[in-house]
Lab assay of single mutants.
Amino acid sequence: NKASVVANQLIPINTALTLIMMKAEVVTPMGIPAEEIPKLVGMQVNRAVPLGTTLMPDKVKNYE
């Protein structure tokens, strides 16, 4: 099972992601793969992401 990116804290809307905000966890359904964490640093979320929520591609601005 592959790990996904999960919010390590509440991430407010329009916040630029940092390493400390994210952790890798095996979750269902799968979100953004954990190996993409370095790519996500500096990207902004387009909505608030509660603690423990899986980061889905549609929650990150300009994620492809």
Rank of each mutant, 00 (worst) to 15 (best):
V60M: 05
V41F: 00
A3N: 05
T18D: 08
E36L: 11
R47D: 15
L17M: 11
M43Q: 05
P12A: 07
L10R: 10
N8K: 11
V6G: 02
G52N: 09
K39M: 12
T54G: 02
K61Q: 10
M56K: 01
M56G: 07
A48I: 11
A16T: 13
Q44L: 11
I13R: 12
P29K: 05
E36V: 06
E25V: 12
P12L: 09
A24R: 00
M22K: 00
Y63N: 04
K2Q: 14
K39C: 15
A3T: 06
V41P: 01
G52F: 04
N14Q: 00
T54I: 07
R47A: 15
I20N: 13
A48P: 13
K23D: 08
N46T: 14
P12T: 07
E25W: 10
P50T: 08
M22R: 00
I13P: 11
Y63I: 05
V45W: 00
T15A: 11
G31V: 01
A48M: 13
K23F: 08
L55T: 02
K39P: 01
K59M: 15
M43V: 05
I11D: 03
Q9P: 02
P57V: 01
T53F: 08
M21D: 08
T54W: 00
I32R: 03
K39I: 13
P50H: 09
A24H: 03
A7I: 05
N62A: 08
E25M: 14
I13A: 14
A24P: 10
E64S: 14
M30V: 12
L55Q: 03
E64D: 11
Y63T: 04
A24F: 07
T53W: 09
L55N: 01
L10G: 07
N8C: 11
K39E: 09
V5P: 01
V27T: 08
T53E: 15
I11H: 01
P57G: 06
A34S: 10
L40Y: 01
N62Q: 08
N14R: 01
T28R: 10
V6K: 02
V41W: 00
V49H: 07
I32M: 04
V6P: 02
P33F: 06
V45M: 01
V41N: 04
R47I: 15
